[in-house]
Each structure stands twice: as C-alpha cells, then as structure tokens.
C-alpha cells in the first residue's frame, strides 16, 4: 500500500509525538498480536507456525541429520523462502544472512554433539506464506518456537568413540526423544536467540513497526536478544521496501543506546509470552 503525501505527513507527525500515537493504538513497545502453533509437522523434529492479525504467516520446520562434525562448517543451516520473491533477490538473501548469522553466533551448538565424531546438524526450512511488514522478527519468533520444540532422538550407543569407531544408534521409541532443553545443566533454560525490529522516528523508537509505519520511518534498527541480554548482531536497515522513502535519514547515536536499553527491558516479556504459548499449546488442537 502506498500512502499519499497527506497520509504520510499525518502518520509521521503522530508517530513523532511523545509518546508516539500509532495507527493501531499500540504503545511504542507493543508487538502486534499473533497466534502460533507448534510441533504439528509429523515428519520433522520441530515445527512452528505464526500468524499475525494482518494475515502474515510463517512456517518453519527443523530437521536434524547425523553428520561427521569435521566435515561440516556449521551445525546449523537455514533456508528462507518468501512467497512473491525470487530466492536470489537481495531481500531474501539478506533475511537469510541475518538469520544464519544470528544462529551461528548464538546457538549453543555444543549440545548437538553426539560423540567425538558425530553430531546432529539442524536444518531450518522457513516459508513465509504471506507478509506485509519486514518479516525478520516474524521469522525469528517462529524459529524460536520451532527450535524450542525440536525433539532429537535419544542416543543409545556409546558416547565415547575415540578408541573404537562406531556409528551412533538411537532409541526406536519417539517418546524417549529429548528436547534440546533437556541436555542443558540444571537451572539453565534453552532459549534460542531472537531478532526484534525497531523503527526510528523523530526522538522515538517503536517496536515491531507495521507496514504503514515502515513507510514513514527515518531509519530502522535490528537488535538481537539471547539469554536475557541484548547481543550482536546489531545493525541498521531501511525497512521500507522501496528506496523512495523521503524521510529516510541518519540516526543519532543516543538512539542506538536507547534501542539496546529497550531490548533489554521488553524482550524478556516476549520470550516469556512465547514460552507460555508453548506450554498452553495442546497436541490435539487443529492447526487451521
């Protein structure tokens, strides 16, 4: 949707107020409502789907494969497919780069090691069926749910294969499969890293800008969050899909510090909301 100059100016002025007035009456730190379903794909180790109220939808499937760790450059790999965009387009490539980068740096791959030689490699297949605003936070929240509900078969063969080469064998019983969470030490919880997008407008930062808001933003920030802390990668981005956003300009450095503080303050709430969502998700519920 392309806004007229009058609409743009109205929207800009209301968002640059303090506190900002957003078109859907959200406060500056509020996410759009979403509904999610986890562990519904029978053929994959973990899966999740998130739908937003504007019809955006993302499905992620996680599959695990046993590999020789020495032959792999990384134990986690992502692929993103977005309806309406070519796979080799800049848009899709960048999203893929962001997600891969986040997981490579912040996913605890040590828990995927099976023996000294073998390891699980996780493949994230991500489909964005429909989207209106920049889909990175949608994809990343879905990947959180999918990784969190990923179950890996229980290893029954010997862990130590340094002396005698042995192929790992697994328990036949799927009920014995373990979540990645179960491999962690007592007191630790497995919370995969997530991205949030922040829109910069005037002196304000708004979390999770919608497609109309994206068209008048002065800049955008992408902040990642893991283990109760804002971490890297952090970068700025032009969230409007066309470079025809005349408001686009540089940002003041205080806004970066403010963005990190905002992430530290509100991301734990996002994580706990997603965790509650997983707990309340019943196995039998229909996915439609």
């Amino acid at each position: 949707m392309i806004l007229s100059p009058a609409e743009r100016s109205y929207l800009y002025d209301s968002l640059a107020q303090s506190p900002p007035i957003r078109p859907d009456s959200r406060s500056d730190h509020q996410f759009r409502p979403l509904e999610a379903k986890t562990a519904f794909l029978p053929g994959s180790n973990g899966s999740a789907r998130i739908r937003l109220m504007d019809g955006s939808e993302c499905i992620i499937s996680v599959k695990a494969k046993v590999v020789l760790a020495s032959q792999e450059s990384s134990l986690i790999e992502c692929d993103i497919d977005i309806a309406g965009f070519r796979d080799d387009s800049n848009f899709v490539s960048n999203l893929k780069f962001y997600l891969t980068n986040l997981l490579l740096h912040n996913f605890p791959v040590r828990y995927l090691k099976l023996t000294s030689r073998y390891a699980f490699k996780l493949f994230l297949d991500c489909i964005v069926v429909s989207h209106s605003s920049y889909p990175l936070s949608l994809i990343s929240l879905t990947s959180y749910l999918a990784l969190k509900t990923t179950r890996l078969p229980l290893l029954v063969s010997d862990v130590n294969d340094e002396e005698i080469a042995e192929q790992p064998t697994f328990s036949d019983d799927w009920d014995n499969a373990k979540y990645i969470d179960d491999y962690l030490k007592e007191g630790e919880t497995f919370e995969p890293p997530i991205f949030i997008t922040l829109g910069v407008i005037g002196p304000n930062l708004i979390i999770d800008p919608s497609t109309e808001e994206e068209q008048v933003l002065e800049n955008g920030l992408i902040i990642s969050f893991y283990n109760n802390n804002v971490i890297t990668p952090i970068s700025n981005i032009n969230l409007a899909t066309n470079s025809n956003n005349s408001n686009f300009k540089g940002l003041n450095r205080t806004l970066i510090t403010k963005g990190i503080a905002l992430g530290n303050k509100y991301c734990p709430a996002i994580i706990s909301a997603l965790n509650t969502l997983i707990e309340q998700d019943d196995e039998e519920g229909t996915i439609f």
Binding site: H105, N229, I231, P233, I234, N236, L251, A261
Partner: peptide
C-alpha cells in the same frame, strides 16, 4: 555525526552500552 550505517558483530554473551 549522524550515524547512517551501523553493524556490530561479536562473540560476547552480553553487550554493554559502554562497549557500544
């Protein structure tokens, strides 16, 4: 000194504002 591009990468477990 407007910032027009920023990209931070690292291996740390938390990012302090002072570091940034």
């Amino acid at each position: 000194d407007e910032i027009v591009g920023i990209w931070i990468e690292g291996d740390q477990t938390n990012l302090e504002n002072s570091q940034v």
